[in-house]
């Protein structure tokens, strides 16, 4: 119970901290962000050039949107409300659609890709690491180890560049043109379009994740388990190898690896956003890129606050699942 409480407080603190930092930056900024934005907005729409009243209305709207009106406390609370509800008004880039609408349209793409590739990478990497530890010293294991050490420190998005260069330009297996998604979601074209869109971004998350990150950490944990008394006892009992791998090795690796996943979720997520962008994948990453380049502050704020809240909540859920699985750390 105390653990849940602590973790919940931590979740709130995390989100508040990220939010407060942003708020303070907005406040402390020597330049007038709203002026900037109004200029942008007018440039995009080409409207309201001669109408000072309309310009004033726009100023008012943005001042309110960014909580720059009223007392400091009002400003803080108002902005916090928008931060939590992603209510950042209308996007400059895609007027008159609201930020929330655009994001909710793109979100499923991102969550599908991420959930899919992170889970696959995690499972694959852990199993491979554990198996490699059983064949420690063999050529295969040494090769995998060398690959892992190379992949481990490289961020996804740098790896993604290599993949793009290889498979979209040098050996053109995939096209980087934005994918047209057919209306009928049960058709073959739909599946092939999804495949086209997803394969490279998924690979560039799965390969370094499975073969680098999770492989290395799982192998290190597995090597430790091999020297544990309980593993030795299991072997001496003559239990089947698969059982040893599953219940003695993987189950004990899984626990710390879930914590590791929760700790690194933020990093994985951030990297994956950039990967999406590189591959023209119709998710949040690409949207973020467009928003940043168009100076669409409301949209950027929306995407970023969603990411922060989303990742924090996901890590929170993982951390609550963890004690359910590890009998040693039941809620104290």
């Amino acid at each position: 119970m105390r653990y849940i409480l602590y973790r919940t407080l931590l979740l709130i603190a995390t989100i508040l901290m990220a939010f407060t930092l942003t708020f303070l930056m907005l406040k402390a900024l020597p330049v007038d962000i709203v002026k900037n934005m109004v200029a942008r907005s007018m440039a995009v729409t080409g409207a309201a050039l001669g109408d000072p009243e309309a310009v004033q209305r726009m100023y008012d709207m943005y001042y309110e949107l960014f909580g720059l009106k009223g007392s400091l406390l009002e400003q803080y609370l108002g902005f916090l409300r928008r931060f939590l509800t992603l209510d950042f008004g209308i996007s400059i880039l895609a007027r008159p659609t609201t930020v929330r609408e655009i994001i909710s349209y793109r979100l499923p793409w991102t969550t599908t890709l991420l959930a899919f590739s992170i889970v696959i990478a995690w499972i694959l990497g852990n199993i491979m690491g554990a198996i490699a530890s059983l064949f420690e010293g063999s050529k295969m294991s040494k090769t995998l180890q060398a690959i892992a050490v190379t992949l481990y420190p490289i961020p996804y998005y740098v790896f993604a560049i290599v993949l793009t260069y290889l498979f979209a330009y040098i050996i053109p297996l995939f096209s980087l043109a934005p994918v047209r998604i057919p209306e009928n979601i049960f058709s073959l074209e739909f599946l092939s379009a999804i495949f086209q869109a997803m394969t490279l971004p998924a690979l560039s998350i799965i390969i370094p994740g499975a073969l680098g990150w999770w492989f290395l950490s799982s192998r290190a944990l597995a090597l430790n388990i091999l020297s544990e008394d309980y593993y030795y006892y299991g072997e001496i009992q003559g239990l089947p190898k698969r059982l040893l791998l599953r219940k003695y090795m993987l189950k004990n690796i899984m626990m710390p690896q879930i914590t590791a996943l929760s700790l690194n979720l933020g990093g994985i997520f951030g990297g994956a956003l950039l990967t999406e962008m590189l591959f023209n994948y119709p998710g949040l990453g690409q949207l973020l890129y467009q928003a940043v380049n168009a100076g669409d502050y409301p949209l950027v704020l929306g995407i970023v606050s969603l990411s922060i809240i989303g990742v924090a909540v996901a890590a929170y859920i993982l951390d609550l699942i963890y004690p359910l699985m590890d009998p040693r750390v039941r809620y104290g």
Binding site: T22, G266, G267, L288, V304, S305, A312
Partner: peptide, 15 residues
């Protein structure tokens, strides 16, 4: 640690 790093830095640098 639980704050996803890149989104936060993106926001800060943007501002």
């Amino acid at each position: 640690i639980a704050i996803p790093g890149l989104p936060l830095t993106i926001m800060l640098v943007m501002i």
